[in-house]
Design a protein around this nucleic acid. Structure first.
Lengths: 196, 196
DNA sequence: GTCTATAGCAGGATAGAC
DNA sequence: GTCTATCCTGCTATAGAC
């Protein structure tokens, strides 16, 4: 069984569309953008995704699957709560560095009134999954006395997620360095054990 | 000097465009949206704002002026640091309740690659003004021992601003209640004196 | 200042050849 | 599966009457 040298077209479309969704938002990217990036014609994209709504939904579901796989991966590693928190933070750091500086929740929320309903629903599921994941990390950290926070773990999970989405946006408007400062401030307030 | 019963048209256009920018993002709203909301024809809007870029820039500058007036108003009141912080938080609460759930920084950042350069620059100025304002509140609070936080006041200001922008977005995707939970968690960590 | 009419363009989408 | 060609729609923008 050989490794395919060329990613199959449908997969490539999803990857590019996902990048564009982060970069420009749902309304600002077009089939043509994808076609140009892929070196095909935009009619070909309609073969895989008949309408833009189909594509939009597929992209968010695809991102959802990736998120769940990351979560499984983290759990398989049996990380300490601070390590698992850093794993989560690294997802956002990845957005900053490789992709183009906006989280999925942010892009979906900002254009919420202008995206198809199925994207809205998928976006809600992703958000809930992130919140639940963070909450579980916080609970484990509190029980093992490796993470410190006051009050409700759910509210603290919301605060962390909100900070990360906002951090990417501030970074895009001003300076990437600001993202790292926000994450540093967050980590300092949360992590008890001396980890760099 | 009588109060004008009907706001002048240019002002109304700005107000509606600002709402739409928060609601749908720059690319997703059209001259027609404004025209319908105002009961005029879209050609009339071009009389006041020849191009959409002009309108977009004017909206952000308008928001910038309002922000600065709010800041002056807060300073004229001689508020305590916790009160001034709550004043700032109330701006975001206002977005949640009256406007449609997204901050200006968020909408500009998400659509950054798709907005005219003048809007980008104006958005950067607004962001810097917010950061500086928050930082000044934090510094005063630390000096008077009414606000508690660790580390750099600039980084903490960034964290607060990011949290608020993100909080609106999570609220839009899930539940308004989540906004209040995030703000509550933030306030609990910051405010030392017993205020409800 | 506001209107009607229309130009010009771009994006989503479909039909049909290959 | 990918192409060319084309349709339709919606948007920005302009010209010119009133």
């Amino acid at each position: 069984m050989e490794v395919a040298i060329q990613k199959d077209t449908k997969q490539s479309i999803l990857d590019i569309a996902e990048d564009l969704l982060h970069q420009k938002g749902y309304n600002a990217f077009s089939y043509k953008d994808i076609a140009v990036a892929l070196g095909i014609k935009n009619a070909s994209i309609h073969y895989y995704f008949p309408s833009k709504e189909d594509l939009g939904e597929a992209v968010v579901l695809y991102a959802f699957e990736k998120l769940k796989k990351l979560q499984e991966k983290a759990q398989a590693k049996n990380l300490s709560p601070p390590e698992e928190l850093d794993f989560f933070l690294s997802i956002y750091q990845h957005y900053l560095e490789k992709k183009l500086k906006i989280g999925l929740i942010g892009t979906l929320a900002v254009n919420f009134a202008a995206i198809p309903e199925k994207m809205q629903i998928a976006g809600q599921k992703i958000t809930q999954t992130c919140i639940a994941w963070l909450q579980s990390i916080l609970e484990k950290g509190r029980a093992s006395q490796t993470l410190r926070f006051e009050g409700d773990s759910f509210a603290q999970a919301l605060l962390i997620l909100a900070s990360l989405e906002g951090a990417l946006q501030i970074a895009r408007l001003t300076d990437n360095q600001h993202f790292y400062q926000i994450v540093g401030q967050l980590r300092n307030s949360l992590i008890l054990s001396i980890t760099i």
